[in-house]
Design a protein around this nucleic acid. Structure first.
Lengths: 342, 342
DNA sequence: TTGTAGGCGTTATCAA
DNA sequence: TTGATAACGCCTACAA
């Protein structure tokens, strides 16, 4: 019913700082201060202001704040997938670190597409983020250019920077591949295959580790490698194992580039009466939650994704505060979890 | 090297509309128009503007735009979990519909906490979203108040509004519970248990359906119900089945309130030599990707979550454009997928 | 401790 | 088709 004289273009007649100021009888800036730096406002005033804010239901306008302060309090996070426990866990670590510090997290899901990543980044840059957290070092030239000119700290996640220049938190994917394959060799497996999908740089590095391990043991045979660019899934693991067994029937172990695949491979064996690990050993990667419960349980590599998210966020915070951390590259390691399947 | 006289507080010396305007020799508003409504700018000018934009690398400032236009081009989506395929799929549907229309999607993950949901919504409202997509109808009073006063369309997802007032896209969780239990009865199972976790309203409704089905068949026995408030996981399914079998050893079928649980229950049976479905039938809910591949494969209920996200986003679009759609409540149904486990 | 002035980058409004 | 002007709501800088 009331027609506020002031509001000319005001979107929905939302309560502004000025409304609160009028109500309390002070200037707008004082309200602003009371909200952001309460200690700089007198006790009495602060109390009256808090009340007025409550009564009027004042809610600061994000856009106005971002515009006036030239700080968005926003951190952009670029991940290749959300349907993967790994990145959801990473996001948890990021969120739990950044949220208490007053940052909004803008999630960009590129679906393993570099082009989509480019679009996302380009769009999100209009937000003038205070920081950007990206997955991996493999991007389009344009993305690299955008990141370089973003004017805010950029932290790379999941892998280590080989040039050692850029801030990053991750672990050596190559070492993972090496360690797991060495483990299989050590357990006496002789004809070890590798099942790869997606083909992102992290998978390729694990694969490289696998190859180097076998070559060193003089057991490498390209016929036992299987790669398709499709996105990972349990079903795909089952299908690919069928194909691998056809191509290399003498396989005695498969290293699946991730646990989804490994679970699918295991189910395939269950269905076809192939005993695991007696006839065929199966190992995965990432140690997804279900892998401890399958029968047999899956040997895998546990990756510190939550910790990566957390540390990456912390690193961003340091960088954003203008600190010069002595360390900007964090290798958080990994753990080989030996279970029943190999 | 150049020191732009104008830039006094400019955050990072970003290129603005004015910079482009100067370069082209027109006013800023013309650049703005050329970018938003190219058809309102002359051919020649448009071309020169496009070039200048390219050369200077101009990128509109989201905050300024939102402030000036009182439109954020942002839609807030509140989900209870990201570690659940269901909501990730829903988000895909939303994103794929809204992104091409120029909307940003702000994801809020409440982790099944109503209090966290309240904090999230409160924070996100500062963005003045153009719309809000929420999961379910069960919220704190404050959230309900905030939604009612948000001043933008709100669409509820996953359930149907019993009062039939609010815009919603979902399906009847109750009917799902009913249908699945009827199916089991029909298949001849007599002592059917229910395994519930999380305890959100959707689970409760399925549970209600289960109870009503059994009561009607005069086969209801509360000893066969098992509920813990913990969050769902494969491991929990295994643990709970162990407890259920102890409490009601005569169980001949379990209806798990979702597929995670069902998979865990199945793995428990595999490990303990309980034949499924001969000794114990297992059914789940949601039809997660892996459920088709386990051995035996899991009977479940496929839910149209991608479609729900898509339709909810479309409904929002209609509402946002001021249309009055004749239909604002969409029941997208569900499908019982009979497989080997029951 | 509080206030004044001015501007952040864009768009709505109205005029030319 | 183009432009001048005045917001949008808040914050920085400086002053009192």
């Amino acid at each position: 019913m009331k027609t506020p004289a002031r509001a000319k273009r005001s979107a929905v007649g939302k309560v502004t700082l000025n409304d609160v100021a009028e109500r309390v009888g002070v200037s707008a800036i004082t309200i602003s201060r009371a909200l952001r730096t309460p200690e700089k406002v007198s006790e009495v005033l602060r109390q009256r202001i808090d009340e007025a804010v409550q009564e009027l239901g004042y809610r600061p306008n994000y856009a106005a704040r971002a515009l006036a302060s030239a700080r968005s309090h926003t951190v952009v996070v670029l991940v290749p997938s959300l349907s993967n426990e790994v990145f959801v866990d990473t996001l948890s670590g990021i969120y739990e670190t950044l949220h208490p510090r007053g940052y909004q997290v803008l999630i960009g899901n590129s679906r393993y597409s570099k082009e989509e990543e480019e679009r996302l980044l380009s769009a999100y840059l209009t937000h003038n983020p205070d920081g950007i957290l990206v997955t991996g070092f493999e991007h389009t030239a344009e993305v690299e250019r955008l990141l370089a000119n973003a004017g805010c700290p950029v932290v790379y996640m999941m892998e280590m920077d080989e040039q050692g220049q850029r801030p990053c938190v991750g672990f050596s994917q190559y070492e993972c591949g090496l360690a797991m394959t060495n483990y299989l060799l050590q357990r006496g497996y002789q004809r070890i295959g590798f099942m790869a999908v997606q083909g992102d740089s992290r998978v390729l590095k694990r694969w490289q580790g696998y190859q180097d391990s076998l070559k060193q043991a003089d057991r490498y045979d390209p016929r036992r490698e299987y790669y398709v660019p499709d996105s990972s899934s349990v079903g795909l693991g089952a299908e690919l194992l069928a194909q691998m067994l056809e191509q290399a029937p003498d396989l005695d172990a498969v290293f699946c580039c991730n646990d989804d695949l490994a679970q699918g491979a295991l189910f395939y064996c269950q269905r076809h009466g192939i005993r695991v690990p007696e006839q065929l050993a199966i190992v995965g990667f990432n140690d997804l939650a279900a892998s401890a419960w399958t029968v047999p349980s899956l040997t895998s590599i546990a990756t510190p994704r939550y910790a990566i998210g957390k540390r990456a966020a912390e690193l961003f915070l340091q960088l954003a505060e203008g600190q010069t951390p002595e360390q900007t590259a964090f290798d958080l390691g990994f753990e080989l979890v030996a279970r029943e399947s190999a």
